[in-house]
Simulated assay, not measured.
Amino acid sequence: MAEEVKLFGARRSPFSHRIEIALKLKGVSYEFIEEDLQNKSPLLLKYNPVHKKIPVLLHNGKPIAESIVILEYIEETWKTNPILPADPYERAIARFWAKFLDDKCIPAAWNACWAKEKEREKTMEEASECLKTLEGELKDKKFFGGDKVGMVDIVANFIAFWLSALQEAVGADLLTPEKFPVLFKWSEELVGCPIIKENLPPRDQLMAFFRARLESSK
């Protein structure tokens, strides 16, 4: 019996994209179901009644919600091409950095780009500190996972691609090769990976979306 794998997501969402990266790295075939985030489908609301948001992975009729939880599920279900280290301590460290990204770094970068003028300096400083911490962890490695893409790289996809489009669209100056050369080089390496690149939304469309949001907020 063939496995049934469906992903409810949105092409412009970095959280959906995380799941696509993991599934593709594992060689898992799946059906992508595009959700209109302004008009969510009854199926999405049924499968994620608590948060009512994407992504949701449906595996043989069983729904799993929240991107980090889904990544862990994928890792435990399909053993090929692991995205977490085998060593328990190193696995814990990877989970720590994934949590740091979701709890601190990504919200800080997002807030810095959307901040009003009077709050811009403070929010940019907070985001820069987070990026500086990430750069210190990356050190001289190609990826956070070492020589290959791992859990932390997948979770950091927002920093690698979405942040670049967002900061250009709103006129922010956060992740640059001058400020963060190591992290910037990593972002280029990650976005250049074929498995990651092939499912990214068109950059011009993403920038247009951010610019429209900026205009509507004025």
Rank of each mutant, 00 (worst) to 15 (best):
M1D: 11
M1H: 14
V5N: 11
H17K: 01
I21Q: 07
L23W: 01
L25C: 10
K26A: 09
K26S: 09
G27I: 03
G27H: 09
V28K: 02
Y30I: 13
E31C: 07
I33W: 04
E35M: 09
E35Q: 10
E35R: 04
L37S: 02
K40V: 10
S41N: 13
L44Q: 13
L45R: 12
K46C: 08
N48I: 05
N48M: 01
N48H: 05
K53Q: 08
V56L: 02
V56G: 01
G61D: 11
K62V: 11
P63Q: 13
I64V: 15
I64T: 05
S67H: 02
V69G: 14
V69A: 15
E72F: 06
E72C: 06
I74C: 15
I74G: 01
E76R: 14
E76N: 14
T77W: 08
W78A: 11
W78K: 12
P82V: 14
P82E: 10
P82R: 12
I83E: 02
D87K: 08
A94I: 08
R95F: 05
F96C: 02
W97T: 00
A98I: 02
A98L: 03
K99E: 13
D103G: 03
K104M: 05
K104P: 09
I106W: 03
P107G: 08
N111T: 10
K116H: 12
E119L: 08
E121A: 13
E121M: 12
E121P: 01
T123M: 14
E125G: 08
E125N: 15
E126K: 14
C130V: 04
L134C: 14
E135C: 11
E137Q: 15
E137G: 11
K139G: 13
K139N: 13
D140P: 11
F143E: 14
F144Y: 05
G145A: 07
G145T: 06
G146D: 08
D147G: 14
G150N: 09
A156S: 10
F158L: 05
S164G: 08
Q167C: 12
Q167W: 06
E168F: 02
D173I: 00
L174S: 06
L175F: 09
L175Y: 02
K179P: 01
F180I: 06
F180P: 01
P181Y: 12
L183K: 05
F184C: 08
S187F: 02
S187T: 05
E188R: 15
E189I: 06
E189W: 07
E189L: 15
I195Q: 08
E198C: 11
N199R: 07
L200E: 00
P201H: 03
P202F: 11
D204T: 12
Q205I: 12
A212I: 04
S217D: 12
K218Q: 14
